[in-house]
Design a protein around this nucleic acid. Structure first.
Lengths: 151, 151
DNA sequence: GCGCTTGTTGCAAATCGTTTGCAAATGGAG
DNA sequence: CTCCATTTGCAAACGATTTGCAACAAGCGC
């Protein structure tokens, strides 16, 4: 799974650096939060809440706490939330300073995810915004297809 | 509302033509289905299930029937399903032969929707597919921003 | 027109993902 | 160590959507 991930993931921050980011915003560094960050750090893929919860090992922390933690981490800019075709939200750890704007190519059959560097041309986006009088325009873009193994 | 819609909507088919499409695939032309098609025809916007259900007037047809009808119409290629940032699915009537591939610019504040003709460059999409060994790659693309009235 | 067969509907209950209220537990500043 | 605001677990509430099932009706053949 991890091996199939084509995007070269930077080494990323260690747990200490991540928890430091929490502390800096005067958020408490609790066991559930550390555990969640550790899991996200181990998986460079967009993880679903269920997957995160599953890895926590039953009895470790409540599902509601996972939801609450993901909101917190999202608002702090530590993770980014994605939505694919099916199922609930998925989350990816962000490096500090990274706005997390990138896209995915998802296999319709096995859900394998590849990160994509290409992006919708920004001049085109600006033109679309201008033409319609919109401001602060961003976009959401995901690709779907059949991966080599599933064809 | 309709006036704000920038996309020149073709006259579209009348109810008779639409119901004919149902008949051709040996599906029954029932009152709920006709009512739903009529509503979709009146609104060139992506409508939510709740909006459709609301327009039906209480007592006219069950909510479950609306959900079932939308699946049917989607599978027959009569409507297209969209997902924006919040809330449930939204549906738009498709002209016959139209694959419905187009995108939207949605106001983050008032949900106003504008249709966009631009699309992600297909050469770029092909390159992404090739580079990752994927087949049958399509994409989903939506824009979000602040409309003139909401800025 | 009349019934038959099969697709369709209404209703209620189930499911899925997510959120919330509340009292008990706890991180960390002083 | 104490205190307090934040966080947690638990259970219940929620919104969107799906499903089982018995009653029903569209459109075929006669």
């Amino acid at each position: 799974m991890s091996a199939a991930h084509s995007h070269a993931q930077s080494p990323g921050e260690g747990l200490p650096e991540l928890t430091e980011r929490l502390r800096r915003k005067s958020r408490k560094v609790t066991a559930p939060r550390q555990a969640i960050l550790a899991i996200l750090r181990r998986h460079p893929h967009p993880l679903s809440i269920r997957e995160i919860f599953g890895e926590l090992g039953r009895g470790n922390c409540d599902l509601a706490t996972v939801y609450r933690s993901m909101h917190l981490l999202e608002n702090m800019g530590i993770v980014k939330r994605f939505h694919f075709e099916q199922g609930g939200a998925r989350f990816e750890l962000l490096d500090e300073g990274d706005d997390g704007h990138h896209h995915h190519l998802v296999c319709r059959s096995c859900d394998e995810v590849v990160e994509i560097e290409d992006c919708f041309p920004s001049e085109l986006e600006k033109r679309i915004a201008r033409r319609n009088g919109f401001k602060s325009v961003t976009h959401r873009l995901e690709f779907f297809g059949l991966c080599p193994r599933c064809q």
